[in-house]
Nucleic acid binder design. Structure first.
Lengths: 333, 333
DNA sequence: ATGAAAGCGCTAACAT
DNA sequence: ATGTTAGCGCTTTCAT
């Protein structure tokens, strides 16, 4: 079925008694049109409810005013801060954000990437780094500015705003050790970044002389409060000596907190709990949750800045940024 | 700055020794191209990392394969289920979802709508109903299929998948009354749909003969665990007789639960709590949260079906659907 | 099975 | 200040 294009600039031009070009100017550069003409055109536009076809305009002027973001999941609360600030920063600069969900699956990611590149956005923001060689090549071939985020790699495709997951693991391990915990357990989803945090954690455990292997309790993604509760139950069943948990999300940690309370386990005395993400609710829990804070707002803002600078022909002087992280010490560990 | 278009079908055609048309066919209708030619073209495409410009193709064929969704906020957990299922249902049918954030503000909504209509998507899914007369006219003029969701109105622009907020208010009021609560309080964000739930609640309160005016504690949007805690504190300070709360989100309700526990208030004995949204965590709280369940998955799926049917020229036989809601009775009230 | 011509709706570039 | 011409990259249509 052919979709009827309600009105075109030519229709509006005819109705207003001017040329199509004048309508285009009245809409995009009103200062270059006489007051009378402007009034006439605007009146017709108002009456018809005409909105120009940006697809056609963008094809001609090769300005899409569109940025695409690729997220593993729309449900994941961790990225929301990044997406919100990305959206806002782009919006302020007149760009629109399009969101694609890759779903933690590499093959889906290639398909999604194809759909995105077809639309020739002014930039692409990836959550995580692009591993598929095919994906990297297409991105490069398309010549679209790319910002990889939420991770670090020595070989980014283009630009990068991230932090080291290994270092988070190391830091949390050291933190728990310094608090006196000697039997930490890792409660985590099984994605690649989580695995690197766990690697870092284990490396530091060795350095600190914790002889026992650090046990892991894996939960399916996305992490939920429910899996936090059941995760703690299973963890304690298999490793009753456990005295601290590093959870791969705050939701998971909340589940642990609730299950601990239900079982009469004192936090932080009998069980230390550390979350990841420092979501709004972390500070307001009882006991307040110690969590790893990542400045998602800053990631989103910088990514937007990078893309827009590039899209508008400005060079980005420092295109690779490690924004770090911070352990927010509260009552739970 | 002019963005260099890396490759076009003509480049690929030249390299493969065929015409542009053949490249186009090899990509879109491979069965209509000879095996040898297909192989040649595919090899060049692979080597170059070529991805066709869908903007140009869409302009010619007027098939965008794009659906836009307008959300008040990306952070709001209530809509996530709808967005997820919308995204998935569209994806399965080869469409992509673009998300725009309107931000509970009517004037921003008009600007956003303009940006969306310019891209000539195959359909637009609105969260909530469109009130602005200007917005309605543009939507109608553009001839793009529209689905309004999460609300009911006798005069939808086009199609509708929603439920009655008044009726939720009435039902929750009746539910709390039947549970023996006589001094309910409304803890709520101050948006329009919340107001209609409160109206419904009050109407039912009168019907049931609750003589006292039902007090309201308003909190800023978006609702958070923190505002749930402080909301309960203020509510009890001004209305110490309160014995039940209807919260406008589950996050708010979780905050109330935590604050109640901190103060040693027994739930549900001394304080009944009802949430809205029935998010994953509601069932896993301690005590488990009674909440109003809205089938967001079904809303998203139906909206996708409606849009795709229309985009592909099929009529939608029942374009206005009230999907209702359900009170999930758990331990908190 | 393949190619040539035309044109989708808009705007850059060049008149006037 | 306004109009004319051409063409963005693709696909529809019509030949061959």
């Amino acid at each position: 079925m052919k979709k009827p294009q309600a009105f075109t600039v030519h229709d509006i031009a005819r109705m207003a008694g001017v040329s199509a070009m004048t309508v285009s100017r009245a809409l995009n550069n009103p200062e270059r049109v006489s007051a009378g003409t402007l009034l006439k055109v605007r009146e017709v536009v108002r009456q018809t409810g005409f909105v120009p076809n940006g697809i056609a305009g963008g094809l001609r002027s090769s300005r899409a005013k569109l940025v695409a973001a690729v997220l593993p999941t729309l449900t994941g609360a961790v990225f929301q801060e990044t997406v919100r600030s990305l959206n806002q920063a782009l919006d302020e600069r007149g760009y629109q954000l399009m969101i694609g969900q890759s779903g933690y699956d590499a093959s889906r990611e290639d398909v999604l990437l194809d759909a995105i590149i077809r639309r020739r956005p002014d930039g692409i923001v990836l959550t995580g780094i692009m591993h598929s060689a095919e994906g990297r090549r297409r991105l490069l071939a398309a010549g679209i500015p790319v910002v990889e985020t939420w991770d670090l790699t020595p070989t980014p495709i283009d630009m990068l705003v991230g932090f080291s997951h290994e270092r988070i693991g190391e830091t949390v391990c050291h933190f728990l050790y310094s608090r006196g915990y000697r039997h930490p357990l890792l409660l985590s989803a099984d994605d690649e970044r989580a695995r690197r945090r766990m690697d870092g954690f284990r490396r530091m455990a060795q350095v600190l002389g914790l002889t026992a292997e650090i046990p892991t309790q894996l939960v399916p993604a996305p992490t939920t409060l429910g899996s936090g509760r059941s995760g703690l139950i299973e963890a304690l069943a298999t490793h009753p000596e456990t005295d601290a948990l590093f959870c791969s999300s705050d939701m998971l940690a909340l589940g642990v907190l609730i299950e601990a309370q239900t079982r009469g386990l004192a936090v932080p005395e009998q069980l230390g709990v550390v979350g990841l993400g420092d979501l709004e609710f972390a500070a307001n829990l009882q006991p307040a949750l110690t969590s790893v804070r990542i400045d998602g707002t800053r990631i989103g803002r910088m990514a937007a800045q990078f893309i827009v600078d590039r899209a508008e022909g400005r060079a980005v002087s420092e295109p690779i940024v490690d924004i770090g992280f911070e352990i927010i010490e509260r009552a739970s560990a």
